[in-house]
């Protein structure tokens, strides 16, 4: 098999009420781009994107919820293996902003507890229809100790930056863990085990067979 051509793999999810533009964040129906009816009819399940951060080549696997949010069926299987979550609301729709708190609760219940989160106030190109101020977005993010950004999938504002920042936050955590794991050898067995498990979960599995298993756990 070919040599490993990347350092890390991060699985990221897009979460939020339907209609907030999650699919547009993943699948950009941009006017100046070539769009095909065939692909837009079927829809995108996930994307793989490669970014370089601090000399590390990182593969991002980004998943959409595929309408499951409408039926409140987002549960543990969807969150499994997720290392980052983009929590999206629509700045022109009050309810989607109020629901952020519900989504945070859902994440607490079902996702890995150390998953890195980021709140996105999407559709920031529609200033004339805005009902949620940027300050309120910042306030709720601060309250929960998570990152915040306003984005526009349509005008391509801050989308790539949001993904890079989330990836960087996960990278920070991962490097912290690596250092912990190194220093933990003389500490208690329990601590060693949990740190090692956490570090290996964050690391890209070895190319021989492991990515396939990883892919299987993602197929739901």
């Amino acid at each position: 098999m070919a040599k490993k051509t990347y350092d890390l793999l991060f699985k990221l999810l897009l979460i939020g009420d339907s209609g907030v533009g999650k699919t547009c964040i993943l699948f950009r129906f941009s006017d100046n781009h070539f769009t095909t009816t065939f692909i837009s009819t079927i829809g995108i399940d996930f994307k793989i994107k490669t970014v370089e951060l601090r000399g590390k080549k990182i593969k991002l696997q980004i998943w959409d919820t595929a309408g499951q949010e409408r039926f409140h069926t987002i549960t543990t299987s969807y969150y499994r293996g997720a290392m980052g979550i983009m929590l999206v609301y629509d700045i022109t729709n009050e309810k989607t902003f109020d629901d952020i708190v519900k989504w945070l609760r859902n994440i607490d219940e079902h996702a890995n507890e150390d998953v890195e989160k980021m709140i996105l106030g999407n559709k920031c190109d529609m200033e004339e229809k805005r009902v949620v101020s940027k300050e309120r977005g910042e306030a709720i993010a601060r309250e929960h100790g998570i990152r915040f950004m306003e984005t526009s999938a349509k005008a391509n504002i801050n989308i790539d930056r949001a993904f890079s920042e989330l990836a960087e936050a996960i990278l920070d955590k991962t490097s912290g863990r690596e250092a912990d794991a190194d220093h933990a050898r003389i500490a208690t067995v329990a601590y060693c085990t949990s740190a090692a498990v956490a570090a290996s979960a964050a690391h890209m599995p070895e190319p021989e067979g492991a990515p396939d298993n990883f892919a299987k756990t993602l197929a739901f």
């Binding site: 950009r28 769009t35 095909t36 692909i39 995108i44 399940d45 994307k47 994107k49 490669t50």
Partner: peptide, 21 residues
Amino acid sequence: NIGFTHTVANCKYLSCADCDA
């Protein structure tokens, strides 16, 4: 960089991750 569509007849189609072609 690549996009994977939803599954159709046991296959997913590949598309450009940036312009969705």
